[in-house]
Every structure is written in structure tokens, then in C-alpha cells.
Design a protein around this nucleic acid. Structure first.
Lengths: 171, 171
DNA sequence: AAAGATACGGAAGCGAGATTCCGTTTGTCA
DNA sequence: TGACAAACGGAATCTCGCTTCCGTATCTTT
């Protein structure tokens, strides 16, 4: 039934239960037998996305020796996913906003990983000194709105954003 | 009845007609006597905002001799307004997305003014050569999401964004 | 001051979606 | 194969906002 992913990816939280059911080829009742409420379904999907993202960033921490490149890939991955998934974009906005609510642990884990990347990047002198992990969600969020707005060409804006992260005295 | 501004500023397009009526101290019927539909009311308010913004930017074009400072003030003004007005943020997203729809003329006018600022800035060598007027809505939009997300401290992100606009070879 | 016109307020009507419920189908066990 | 249980599908139900409508209050005109 997780093919409901498609519906949420396409319509974000506006996705309709009936649409989800139709895509899965079942009746709405069946959907409700797996998830008590639309909210629950949405959260399950978002949790899944967090897991994917955490795994990806962990991969960067472990395997990407170039600190700057790691950040670059991090943003790139995030943007690319948002381009395909409206619900994820929404989740990020929520994360950037009140840092509260459910999935506290996942958010925390992700922030910790991002912090690791930033510590390395700062040590290597490839980013501004004042950039901290909690800034990242906000930046992802900014990127999200651009990605959503003009479907194409978000790469240009990504580059622009990355330029802004470089240390004041350019290399 | 334009005190309905408050409702839309606070809740964006989610504002409810009944709330609008309550704030205005009238019945919903009266609201509908002035605007045939919620959509119409929203558009009227947005049109108003466009006018304000156009006027502000025109002021910059006319009175701000420093090309870079003009851009800076432009973004600053935009962000500050978004912080107080969710509906405006929504309008920008829409503008950045499909460049179509109503208010074609206002959008055009605003873009023309922004273009003037950019032409000057590029001539003065204070921004990247590849920045064009149509990028601005997307950037405003990016800023918008940050402003909305974490109420405070959007100034930091604004600075970051502006840094990204500087020419590759920093002054 | 009375008749007619105009503007009001807010309850009733609707449409869109989420959620619930129950008759039916499919699968299991003896 | 027959009885019982679990899973289905999707119509009926509920809720929430927008929009419409009508009896009442206010203002104009003579």
C-alpha cells in the first residue's frame, strides 16, 4: 500500500485519501485499515523519507573526504528529492519552523550528522565560520521553495546558495 | 472593510471569510456585497501589495544612487513585509512559479523596475553577471520560506543570500 | 411621517474531503 | 465441503468553509 507515496509526492499534504486508494487499487476502507488517519499515513511516509535522508548524509560523513563536496552533495540530494516530492518539501518547512513535534529523534540525528559535516568544512576553511547545523533546515527550506516554484533550473539557484556559504574571503 | 488585510496577513490564503467579517465587525453577507468571492478579495489585497512594492522599488530606482545598496534594500523590504504578511509570501511563490495569470501588467512592471536595478548593479560590477530580473521572484520566494519558517533571525539568511549574489571575484 | 429603496446580519444550503460502517468476498480450519 | 474469521470495497455520514438568501434595520424622498 506504500504506493501511496506517489500521491503524496505529487500533491503534498493535499493528497486525497480516495486518490491514494485508487492508486493502490483498493477501497478507502482498506487504506484506513493500515493507517488510522490521513495524518498517520503522511507521517509514516515522512518518517521513511527522514530515514533515507539520514542514511544518505551518513554515507557522506563516512565516504566523502572532501568537506565542501560533501555539503554540495548534501544540498543537491535534498533539492533533487524535493523536485520529485512535494510532501518532503513540506516536512522540511515544518522542521525549519518549530523544531518541535514528532520525529524529534530523527531530526536530532540528522542535525548531528549535518553538524559533523559542518565542523569538518569549517575546519577546512571552506565555509563561513558562522554557519551552524540548525541553519541547514532553513536553507533546505529556501531551496525547496525555489525548486517548487520554477520546476526547472533550480541548479542555478543551488549554486548561488552555495556561493553564499563560502567563507567571506574567497579561496 | 479592508481591515480584512489583517486576516489574510495572519493566515495567508487560509484566512476564513467569517473571520474577516468578524474583524470588520460586520456579517459575512456584507463582505460578499463588496467582493463577490473570497478569491476576489484575496486578489484585491494582493494587487494592493503589488502596488506598494512597485512604488517602493520605483523609489529605489529614482533615489538610491548606490546600485548594490538598492538591491539590498529591495530584498530587505520584501523580507520584512513577508514577515508580517503570509498572503504576500504566497503571492510571490505564485509569481515565481507560472509567470502567468492575472496582474500580468503589475508583474511586468515590477520586473522592469527590478531589471533597471540589476542593469545598474551589473554595470557597477557589484553583482554576478548572470543574475537577471526573472531570478528575483525566485529569490524573494526562497527568502519567504525562511522568513516564514523561523520567525526571527531571517536577517542572517538575507545576508547569506546577498553574499551569493556578489560577483565571483569579490571586491 | 409613510412608502420605497438600500444595506445588514447571520442562518441555511452546498460541495469537498476525511472517516466510519456494514454487507460481501476470500481464505482457513476441521 | 461447511462454518467461521479476516479483509474488502465503497456508499453513507460528518465536518468544515464558502456562498446564497431572506427577514429586518436604516436611510431617502415626498
Amino acid at each position: 500500500m506504500e504506493a501511496a507515496r506517489g500521491a503524496f509526492a505529487e500533491h503534498g499534504s493535499e493528497a486525497q485519501m480516495e486518490d491514494v486508494a485508487r492508486r493502490a487499487g483498493v477501497g478507502v476502507g482498506t487504506v484506513y485499515r493500515h493507517f488510522p488517519t490521513k495524518q498517520a499515513l503522511a507521517e509514516a511516509l515522512i518518517g521513511e523519507r527522514f530515514d533515507h535522508t539520514i542514511a544518505y548524509v551518513r554515507g557522506l560523513v563516512d565516504d566523502e573526504p572532501d568537506a565542501w563536496r560533501a555539503l554540495e552533495r548534501c544540498f543537491e540530494h535534498c533539492a533533487a528529492r524535493q523536485a520529485k516530492d512535494r510532501a518532503w518539501a513540506g516536512a522540511l518547512v515544518e522542521m525549519a519552523g518549530g523544531m518541535m513535534g514528532p520525529r524529534e529523534d530523527q531530526k536530532h540525528e540528522l542535525l548531528a550528522l549535518l553538524d559533523t559535516l559542518l565542523v569538518r568544512a569549517r575546519a577546512a576553511g571552506v565555509v563561513r565560520e558562522d554557519l551552524v547545523a540548525t541553519d541547514m533546515p532553513a536553507l533546505f527550506c529556501a531551496l525547496a521553495s525555489v525548486v517548487q516554484a520554477g520546476g526547472d533550473g533550480w541548479r542555478r539557484y543551488l549554486e548561488l546558495l552555495l556561493d553564499g556559504l563560502r567563507p567571506p574571503a574567497r579561496s
